[in-house]
Computed example of a mutant assay.
Amino acid sequence: MVLIKHLPRDSALQRDLHGEVAEWSVTDHLLAAAVDHLAVANWMFSCVNSSEDGDAPEFPEPVPRPKSTKDAEEDGEGSGPDGTAAAPDAGEAAPAVSPGQLARFFG
């Protein structure tokens, strides 16, 4: 059990149990979150500073994150492991932002 418990992240057993998530390190998740936050900040800046009222830029697509095999079976499509929501469609209103999400965004 000790040998199995301490297998490396990229082992076949870890990939079978956790799917693509086993291949992503904490650094990879942090880089994806940083890219998403920068894209949203640039989107907000361009929305505020756009000269035309009706021509708002599209909401940026988040960096695709791997799902574990367990997550993929449970909900299919949805939000990423860090809790970020998918981009709203053109006809839909943007989802409300919770205080917890604001606290995570601003640190």
Rank of each mutant, 00 (worst) to 15 (best):
G78I: 08
M44E: 06
F59E: 03
P62M: 03
T27A: 12
N42M: 11
A41C: 10
G80E: 14
T69W: 12
H29K: 10
A33C: 09
F59C: 11
S51M: 06
W43K: 01
C47E: 03
A87N: 03
A56M: 07
F59L: 00
D75R: 15
D28F: 01
D53V: 07
M44C: 10
F59W: 12
D53I: 05
D71Y: 11
S51D: 09
S79F: 14
P81I: 12
P62W: 00
A32K: 01
G54M: 04
T27W: 08
V40W: 03
S46G: 00
D36R: 07
A90V: 09
S79W: 13
L31H: 11
A56Q: 04
G54D: 11
R65D: 03
D89C: 07
T27V: 12
V63E: 06
G80N: 15
N42F: 10
P88L: 02
H29M: 14
L38D: 13
A72N: 15
F45C: 06
S68Y: 08
P88M: 03
S46C: 04
F45S: 09
N42A: 15
E61M: 11
D55V: 06
S25D: 05
A72S: 15
L38M: 13
A85W: 09
N49A: 01
W43D: 00
A41K: 09
D82A: 08
D28A: 09
D28H: 07
A87L: 04
D36I: 04
E74M: 12
S46D: 10
N49D: 02
S51A: 10
P64N: 04
P66I: 04
M44S: 06
F45K: 10
F59D: 02
E77K: 13
T27M: 08
V26P: 03
T69Y: 09
A85H: 12
G78C: 08
T27E: 15
V40T: 08
T27N: 09
N49E: 02
D53T: 04
P88N: 04
S51W: 05
S79L: 14
S46H: 05
D82I: 01
F59V: 06
E77R: 14
E52T: 09
F59S: 02
V63M: 05
A87Y: 04
S51V: 07
S68M: 11
A90M: 05
